[in-house]
């Protein structure tokens, strides 16, 4: 399946998805509510079958918090990037994809720890590296006068 067909496929699941041809992968941006459904479809549909979540990262874009999923289909040798953005910085909640890819368990814990994005239905969402008293250091508005020297 080439990128055009994949685009159609994604649009048939989530009609208002933003799709960009990135410099490496096809980048699909959806609203948080649609993410879990799209992910599940992409994994379970035998035509796409994205079964390998090789990276999941959180990015703070200033105005919104974003989670980036790098997916790969081992069967079809194809990759796709899913993104979901939430403007809510106070209480960002995104559906966990732990039930689709087990790898998400640790990635999501890490993102929660460093960016403060909460994942609904995650089995064990606790701080991972840092203690409860810490803020969320990878957010751009994080200030730590003692440990981090700003340039």
């Amino acid at each position: 399946m080439d990128n055009d067909k994949l685009k159609e496929k994604v649009l048939s699941i989530v009609p208002n998805a933003e799709i960009v041809n990135g410099n490496q992968y096809l980048e699909v941006t959806v609203i948080p509510g649609k993410l879990h459904e799209l992910a599940k479809q992409l994994k379970e549909n035998p035509e796409t079958n994205f079964d390998f979540l090789f990276c999941q990262s959180g990015v703070d874009y200033g105005d919104s918090l974003c989670v980036v999923y790098h997916l790969e289909s081992l069967k079809h040798k194809q990759s796709i990037v899913l993104k979901t953005k939430t403007p809510n910085r106070e209480n960002p909640i995104i559906d966990s994809v732990y039930d689709i890819w087990k790898a998400a368990e640790y990635h999501e814990r890490e993102i929660y720890d460093l960016l403060g994005i909460k994942f609904r239905n995650h089995p064990d969402l606790r701080r991972f590296f840092l203690e409860e008293s810490w803020g969320y250091p990878l957010r751009k508005d994080f200030k730590d006068e003692i440990n981090i020297i700003e340039k």
């Binding site: 990276c55 990262s57 703070d60 790898a103």
Partner: peptide, 17 residues
């Protein structure tokens, strides 16, 4: 000249899971 965000997907982190 600085990256906006840099993420390392480290093999051990995933293998630990």
């Amino acid at each position: 000249k600085y990256p906006y965000r840099m993420k390392f997907r480290s093999p051990n982190f995933c293998n630990l899971a």
